[in-house]
Amino acid sequence: MRRTLTLLMVAVLMVTAVSLTTGCERKVTVLTGEIVLCTAGEIIEDNTEEVEVPASQVSEYGVTTRVITCDEHGDLAAAYAAAQKAIAEGDLVTARERLRTVLDRDPTYGNAADQLAEIDAGRRPAVDSGSADAGTGGTGDTGGSGDTGGGTVPSDDPGDTPQGPVVSLVKWVPDTIEGYVAQGILADLASLSRQYIPLADSADQLMIEVQQHVNAEAAVAAQTAIAGQYPDSTTSRTIGGKTVMAGVKGGFAAGVFIDGPITVTVELHATSGSGSALIDAVFDVVTKITR
């Protein structure tokens, strides 16, 4: 009986000690504020900040996203719309001039490159009927209404193609990577990811995640943070002029690089054992998607 009481007393003392020292409400650091995105995919403003709040209030904080068309891309949209109008009227000279204006500032804008190539080849290109939307852009607010404001609603349908701001990130998750079978793209307002099934036995999953940041400095910080999540067997390699920071965590091997304000993370999961044997495979994937 005495031992039982002793055990109970020790347990009560321990619970009391733990309660006294940790009983005060836990603090949680949350990111809160608003990110303003351009319909062209760039982050225009990042008005977020980290605040420390009581745990019970965490649900009241979060990051909302608003999508607008910035002045620069508004001008591009106007020039592109004028080019479409000229094509429709058969004025290919004006159309060519407007398309050149667009391509000088954004070589990937809409169908401008294809249309200019057709005009140069002496043909009349088809009018891009979606140009009105591209030109006017629009605004949206993710806070509370559930309206993603022009962003792409996440979907796991392999046939889905992202639309909106994240379209510019799609080039990092190509449909074809030799040795892998692509699955559907999953897109958010400022990021997207794609899973691939490896054909080799050594790995059972490849995941590529692309994130848009407010500027290159933020991307560099994110690269360091992401790389830090793979603390073992760390190494780095320069591929296509980009520094790829790689590491391993358990069965995962990952490499992360930046392209301006964008971070691209390539992560492979080993079929069994440590992911350290997959580091070279990660670099190989990076080589293929940066060609």
Partner: peptide, 18 residues
């Protein structure tokens, strides 16, 4: 994480020893 209302939640907290 992404909340159902579209808000992004990013939170960092400590786990105590227990």
């Amino acid at each position: 994480g992404l909340r159902t209302d579209g808000t992004q939640l990013r939170a960092v907290f400590d786990l105590y020893g227990y």
